Computed example of a mutant assay.
Amino acid sequence: MSVKTLLDPQVKSHFLKLSQAEVVSHLLTVQDGLTKYSENPAIVPPRTKVFTPRGDTMHMFMPVVDDVYCGVKTLGFNASSGLGFVGAITVLDPHTGLPRGVVDAKQVTGIRTALSSHIGLYKVKDKFADISKLHVTVFGTGLQAFWHSFVCAKIFSDKEIQLNVVYRSNKLNDEELLQSCSNVKTVNYVKGNSDQVADLCNNSHVIFGTLPTTDPSIFKRFFKESTHISFTYIGLIGSYQPHMHECDVELVSLFQEQGAKIIVDSKEHSLLEAGELITPGVEPSELIEIGQLESASDVKIEASIGSRSITLSKVVGLAIMDIVSAKKFVEDFE
């Protein structure tokens, strides 16, 4: 059996051409992997971080060992290279150990993160059944922001998407987005320090945070008690260290006070890495993993501010997401 090699341009071009049903298929595949993780976290062993003898390059090895999904994601970083984090995902046959494919990591990482933070949204998508125009606000303009915008537009392909992008300096690469998603008519850009940000959030059905910020960008006070928006889904993926916060403590505390669970990919990892959960002292019992959503349909995942209810999701990233997505891409090309 030949080993399939997929480079970033191939991954991007392929995913941009997928239909709504095909994007949902990728999403459900990631959900399956996260369900396996929730059932048995041991399938994701601890990652290894080592430096080359000269000490200028760091390498990370992130394995997954499961009966269905098996492989390793590798990342390297050298500050002087100017390349940022680069790496690959090796997909292995779990029964023989033979390699099935090697996939560039950059695009897959962006796609699998977007798919993961949409799983909770896909679960509650019927809340928007009677809405013809979905107001979506994305914080950030990088790779993660692009794929979150794309996946959202594809999942809600039957609705017009009013896309608002909150940015610092560079704007989103929206040309490819507009070409691939006919339901996104225009993109509205707003500076992060603008007074308009609060109103954008208050009038949004869906909000995504993709910025690795120390200080919050999304505040509880943005959401007024009296509003025509009855439900808002917030997905956060930008922060990945204890001192980082994408939303304020007050928004997270709202869920704690009302006994509503926050959706995460991993209770263990999110409480080690997500500052917005660590600072207010969120306990594991106050979280529900993405992989538990299907088996816990009666769990409360909405907090209320006046007449509006809010669901909050926080994804920090797991190697199982990479292996699952890379395997799906390899199968798409076989």
Rank of each mutant, 00 (worst) to 15 (best):
S2A: 14
T5M: 02
L6K: 09
L6H: 07
L6C: 10
K12M: 05
F15S: 00
L16M: 09
S19P: 06
V23M: 07
V24S: 01
S25F: 03
D32G: 14
T35P: 12
V44D: 01
M62N: 00
V68Y: 07
V72T: 15
F77M: 01
S81W: 01
G82D: 09
L83K: 09
L83R: 05
H95V: 11
P99Q: 12
V102Q: 12
V103A: 10
K106T: 11
V108P: 01
R112G: 05
S116Q: 08
G120Y: 03
K123D: 07
V124Q: 03
D126E: 15
F128T: 03
F128K: 00
D130V: 07
L143Q: 11
A145E: 05
A153Q: 03
S157L: 03
I161V: 15
V184D: 06
Y189H: 12
V190L: 09
V197P: 14
V197M: 10
A198L: 10
I207S: 07
I207A: 09
T210F: 11
K220W: 01
F223H: 02
Y240C: 12
P242A: 13
C247T: 14
S253H: 12
S253R: 15
S266W: 01
K267A: 09
L272P: 11
L272T: 14
E286V: 00
S295C: 05
I301T: 04
T311G: 09
K314W: 07
K327I: 00
F333Q: 09
